[in-house]
């Protein structure tokens, strides 16, 4: 366990040194808070751009829950893009720089390295998402209207689960591939497929973790969870564990090749 903590702290230190602990949470806050702010000041913004006051006043003001929903979908596009790009080299980058060899001089198991990496990614991503989401809630409450705290809490947990799954996909592709850009691209492609396919092949994709975002949205707008929500929740948990395990297998297989390129 103490060895695992050393690995975890090493990852966290690396993220601090590359400013990830500063800029990713700040970007998540700004990305989220922009929604209630631009919505609330839309009439003034339109007027300033020469659009008649009457038109601006006739614009419907969306419900507070819709603002939170919009923020979640923004995290799902730009947020996931940022996370995938900043973690795309988390395993393959160390293989290329030779740091992986240094670590495996000691008897470190690939599984504990993979879980330590995943835990550090999760710490950062969940902190950034949590702060950003709560800041958005705060601004929405002031500018638009209130959303009940229990709905915020539940939707936050649902989306956090999807994020954990997404991070494990990035980790897996980063250990399976040598190209960092390729790993980010494939991870994003897989995540997009899991989000989009349930609406196309509804019956076969009921389990898709990509539905968690939709479930969080339903929760926000209707106030209650859909009855089939347990399936994607269970699938997300299982697949997250499976992907982390696959990641450690890929690292193990590739470990023989390090340094020889």
């Amino acid at each position: 366990m103490s060895q695992w903590m050393v690995l975890y702290r090493k990852e966290m230190l690396g993220m601090t040194r590359s400013y990830k602990w500063l800029w990713i949470p700040v970007v998540f806050i700004l990305l989220g808070v922009m929604n209630p702010v631009t919505t609330a000041y839309m009439p003034q913004l339109l007027e300033a751009n020469g659009i008649a006051k009457e038109v601006a006043a006739a614009m419907p003001v969306p419900a507070a829950a819709d603002i939170m929903l919009k923020t979640l979908s923004q995290y799902n596009t730009l947020g996931l893009l940022i996370l995938a790009l900043s973690f795309m080299g988390i395993v393959s980058g160390e293989r290329q720089s030779g740091a992986a060899v240094m670590i495996h001089v000691k008897p470190v198991s690939h599984l504990s390295l993979a879980t330590a990496k995943w835990a550090s990614m999760a710490s950062l991503a969940l902190t950034a998402f949590g702060i950003g989401y709560l800041a958005t809630w705060y601004y929405t409450d002031i500018l638009i209207g209130s959303v009940p705290p229990h709905l915020i809490g539940q939707s936050l947990l649902l989306y956090a689960l999807w994020l954990l799954f997404a991070l494990s996909a990035v980790l897996m592709f980063s250990s399976a591939m040598d190209s960092q850009a390729g790993a980010a691209f494939l991870a994003l492609l897989a995540l997009a497929a899991l989000s989009l396919l349930p609406s196309l092949l509804g019956r076969f994709m009921k389990w898709s973790p990509g539905r968690l975002t939709g479930e969080a949205g339903t929760l926000l707008s209707t106030g209650s969870m859909a009855s089939g929500a347990w399936l994607p929740i269970a699938a997300a948990l299982l697949l997250t564990a499976a992907l982390i395990f696959c990641s450690s297998l890929f690292s193990k297989r590739k470990a023989g090749n390090t340094g020889t390129k």
């Binding site: 800029w23 806050i29 002031i142």
Partner: peptide
């Protein structure tokens, strides 16, 4: 009130630019 709301965001953005 507007300034009170927007100021924290402007400060956050400044911190980001300064760090970069």
């Amino acid at each position: 009130d507007t300034l009170k709301l927007v100021l924290p965001l402007a400060i956050l953005q400044l911190i980001l630019v300064a760090a970069a």
